[in-house]
Design a protein around this nucleic acid. Structure first.
Lengths: 203, 203, 203, 203
DNA sequence: CGGTAAACGAGACGGTACGTCGTGTCTTTGA
DNA sequence: TCAAAGACACGACGTACCGTCTCGTTTACCG
């Protein structure tokens, strides 16, 4: 335990474990207050009372710190409530995502996607630790639905996930229309029942 | 009208149209060569042999110039080829979009979306002059399909467009999977026929 | 001759005399308000409601306009009052100069000398139209004093004028000590009677 | 004390003395090559291979750097040679000043006086570190002369110094006449013996 | 008396320098 | 021996003026 982490120290001043926390907290606060432009190394260092080299020791640039702070802040995903049927759970899940997207967390998500466009390393981290993780829920539900016969079994799961999630991200990023529960319902309905004329089936 | 734009000139030396062209060409070249980070006011000014104030007179910052250059470069949208049925034309259209997205133009589109995240004015311009314009094609086809009975008439057109376009943008921005003709076909198929088990109908 | 200045005009619209006045007034006001740094071509043009080329048609740069405005403002030299003896008149004259130097006109004089240091053309104009003109008075008095035997006849007049005027300019420019009537008296006394021990003679 | 300047260092990397030297050398070279107009922050930074903030950390503007460079370059005042009588030493001293004034150092002195006219802080620095320091020599000689009875004891020392130095500065700044040994002699003769008719005494 | 040529105001042009900010690296002192 | 503090070289930012240029307009003269 503590002897395990302490005994590694050879000599000199030990790393300050709290520094990491303070850095991420500072980055998070700056991100919320002034957007990605406010998350500069200098501002983080000042706010966290930390030397710039201390930050550079762990992250290569300010965007990376912002990403780390973002991931830290959003890692607590609300576990799905699956009662009442797989498709109902899927609907609830997407509604929750949409709701999140209309808060500051949504704004930050958009900023992280933006930051990732100019930095492939950042893109990879974001993909693995945010996108893929948040798709887990949807993927599990889709697979359940396939197993339960509520959904076709010949589907490309990844494409299906894109079909469901992408419209939310699209509206988040483009801002051309609101994402509310009605929009989520419309998307789910269209996706499930298809655009062709047909008899809509109940969920 | 042309009189509307021409007659505005009040007094003083009129703007130099060639300077504007050189600025946009320089911005475009810089964008292609080094991404959005390379599109700095100083670099544009140097490359276009233009004073910085000349740029600031028309655009408020480097991103705005990049956006203008991007829009200039992408305004020539290939008109749709509608022979062979509405749904086939829709498929061809989305395939063309996907193809564009795998070129430098796609990269630039992603960068513009990224830039728009921190600048609402930029976002507006991008929405109006790129997103909305490129949806025109899809919207026209969907409306034709509705009129022709190939597609349900109770659809929310905007949501439907999102359902079709968003997956492409999503993959462009997240890069978690390729967008190829197969992906487009999968998306179209899923969207048209729905995720539920059913008898697929021919296009 | 008037024909000499007027007849030069070949054709076209003649110069606007009022524009010249407005330019000089604007330059003068700017000089008084913000020192030489405020006298910029753009500020003059704006304030005088004049195009920049109109200014450049007559003066080569902003300092030259400032100099012209300064000379215009100071050309009205108070004629000397010579009653009560030549030396008394000389004393009154120098006191008057010192008094002028403690006003804004003195400040401006210093600024003009400063401006002249980096522009030989300006230096020449200042020398001819200000320095030499203001020395006329002193020169006349000295020559009278020589003629009247109150002052040695073997003097180099120019050097003598320097001896009397320079201390005032020096204090104006360096600001190491005030110039008041007492200082003028001290200088005159020392200059007339010499630094060596002797019996002082009455004026 | 050296402890006074050294012990101030609180924390962080100390200032780089070599950067300071390079900055002053660059400023000095630029001043000599192109006058005060050539001493721009950008040119200094480029020439000294120094970032602009490094310069701004110590000086508020380009003139201040020029002044510092000037003072650095002129701080080595030739100590006076007092053999052969106080008045002879005074004459030699003033001749030396005049000689200096006809070199580039004189040009620079004039430029510094000019720069000081628009910047009271600069004026103060110039007064203290140049004018007052260079008057020390004259003041000491005058005081010796007073003590030795070669000069009147009722003199205002400051005014007397002005009487002797000012004509040199005046000709330096106005450029209306040369300053040579003859001029210095004329000034000294006139100042010592006075302008009134009298029997000139030998030095 | 109508044409023409120069001066007018306005303001855009290509530039230079400003003073500030952030970058990522380095070099101190202090813990 | 590592952390904070902060100086370093660099380079982009957005602004202010420079001195030149091009507009459309005005105003005297000369043919």
């Amino acid at each position: 335990m503590s002897s395990e982490t302490k005994s590694v120290q050879r000599s000199g001043r030990p790393r300050d474990a709290k520094a990491r926390e303070r850095i991420l907290a500072a980055a998070s606060a700056l991100l919320d207050e002034g957007g990605i432009a406010a998350v500069t190394m200098e501002a983080i260092a000042k706010r966290a009372s930390v030397g710039k080299p201390t930050i550079y020791r762990e992250w290569p640039n300010a965007s990376a710190v912002a990403m780390a702070a973002f991931l830290e802040a959003t890692k607590g995903l609300a576990p799905a409530d699956r009662q009442g049927g797989v498709l109902a759970a899927l609907r609830r899940h997407l509604r929750a995502v949409a709701e999140t997207f209309s808060t500051r967390a949504g704004r930050n998500t958009a900023l992280m996607i933006a930051a990732a466009q100019s930095d492939s390393e950042l893109a990879k981290v974001f993909r693995i630790h945010f996108i893929m993780k948040s798709r887990e829920e949807g993927r599990a539900l889709i697979e359940l639905a396939v197993a339960g016969g509520q959904v076709r079994s010949d589907l490309d799961i990844e494409a299906t996930l894109d079909l469901l999630y992408a419209p939310l991200y699209f509206r988040l990023l483009i801002g051309h229309a609101p994402f509310d529960a009605r929009f989520v319902d419309t998307i789910i309905d269209a996706a499930l029942n298809g655009l062709r004329p047909r008899l809509a089936l109940p969920d």
